[in-house]
Structures are given as structure tokens and as C-alpha cells.
Amino acid sequence: MTSQLFSPDVQQTLDLIGIFVFALSGGLLAVRKNMDIFGICVLAEATALGGGVMRDLVIGATPVVAFTNLGYFVTPLLAALVVFFLHPEVERINRAVQTLDAFGLGLFCVTGTAKAHDYGLGAVSSMALGMLTAAGGGVIRDVLAHEMPALLRWDREIYAVPALVGSAMVVVLIGAGQLTTASGTASALTAFVLRMLALKYGWRAPRAWHRNGSRTSEE
């Protein structure tokens, strides 16, 4: 199966790292929203696992891995506890959290795309589910917290675009019969680097233009 790009132990370790960091971002938003410990745990779980759960439900990979692998379910709870007790310290290392979040984005867009393809989806659908795997949890997090999803906000650095680029690279590699551990890693690193550059230089997606061709000046 093309989705098994790494050995099972390496894959699980990478997954848990990504899940933990995604859960931290969910927990931090819950703290900012003044939620209690239950709310922190819910947002941590939703952020960490939401994208993968939606992907697996779409492709029919049930029961979903988030509920069959205890480590995947428990890891967000550990992150929630870290945030509950140490959220000021976690906020202070926000740059490191963003870096690891970009790592998770790159990893999950690649493995999500490959898994969708394994279940018979075409190139475009696999790309879409790769992006969903990487970014879907953040959308669920924001909706639960009554915020416009960061994915859709013009004033946030691009997030979905790097995931789409990584996913597109995977489907091209699959089509050419060249998806390997090395090429899959390169795809993940491409998404990671794009996200980090977006954070560094403030890259944002363009907004709608007026019909006369000039950009809107509204801020």
C-alpha cells in the first residue's frame, strides 16, 4: 500500500508527534476562550484527530484509526493536560509550536493523500482528502470555539496552500509510480517549508478583486 511510506514504528512516532502538537493548538485556543478542563480536552482531541477521522469516514476506513489505536486517542489528552497546567509556558514557545505544527501539516497531507488513493479515490479527490487530513481538525477547533476558521481568514498566513502543494506532489508521484519513502518525505518537507516561509514573510492568499480589475482597499 502506498500509504505505508515509513516503517510502522516510525509512522506511529511521527503521527503521535503531529497529533500532540495539533492538540496543543486546540488546547491553547480553549484556554483563550476561558474553557474548563473538559473544553480543553475536547478542543485538543478535535484539533488533533478531526481531519483524520473525517478522511477515514469519507473513504470508509472504519472503525477509524483514532479509536482503534489507544495512543492516538490518549496523546491529545496528554497535550491538554500540558496546556491546562503550563499554558503560559506553552504560549511563550509559540514559535516552536508553529514549527512543529508545520511539520504535522506536511506529514499528514502526504499520508492522508496516499491513504485516500489506496482506497480507490482519484487524483483530485485524494488531494482534497490530503488537505482535509492536515487542516480539517483546525477547522473543527475554530467552529467549536465560535471563531471563523483560520483556514478561511484573509489576515492569516496561508495554511491550506502548502498542504495542497504537498498533496499534489504525492498524486503526481503516485501517477508516475515513484512514491517512495524518500519522495514522500520530500513532498512533506515541501509543504513544511512553504508553511514556514509563509509565517516568516506573511504570505497570504489574494482576496477578491473589484470587477474593474483593481484590488479592494478595504482592510
Rank of each mutant, 00 (worst) to 15 (best):
M1T: 07
S3T: 02
Q12V: 11
T13K: 02
T13I: 13
D15I: 00
D15Y: 00
L16K: 08
F22N: 00
L24G: 01
L29V: 14
M35S: 06
D36I: 04
C41Y: 06
A48N: 02
L49Y: 10
G50D: 02
G52M: 12
V53Y: 00
V53T: 03
M54S: 08
A61S: 13
A61C: 05
T62C: 02
V65D: 08
N69S: 07
P76R: 06
A79F: 10
L81T: 07
F85E: 03
P88T: 10
R95S: 10
V97L: 12
L100S: 01
G106E: 01
G106K: 01
F108I: 06
C109V: 11
V110Y: 04
V110D: 00
G112D: 04
T113C: 15
A114S: 11
K115F: 09
K115E: 06
A116W: 14
H117G: 03
G120R: 09
A123L: 05
A123F: 07
V124R: 04
S125R: 06
S125I: 10
M127K: 07
G130M: 10
T133D: 02
G136R: 07
G138P: 09
R141N: 04
D142I: 14
W154G: 11
W154K: 09
I158A: 08
V161L: 15
L164M: 15
V170S: 00
V172F: 15
L173M: 14
G177D: 12
T185V: 00
S187D: 07
R195K: 09
R195Q: 07
K200M: 10
K200I: 09
G202S: 04
R204Y: 03
P206W: 08
A208Y: 07
W209L: 14
H210R: 11
R211H: 13
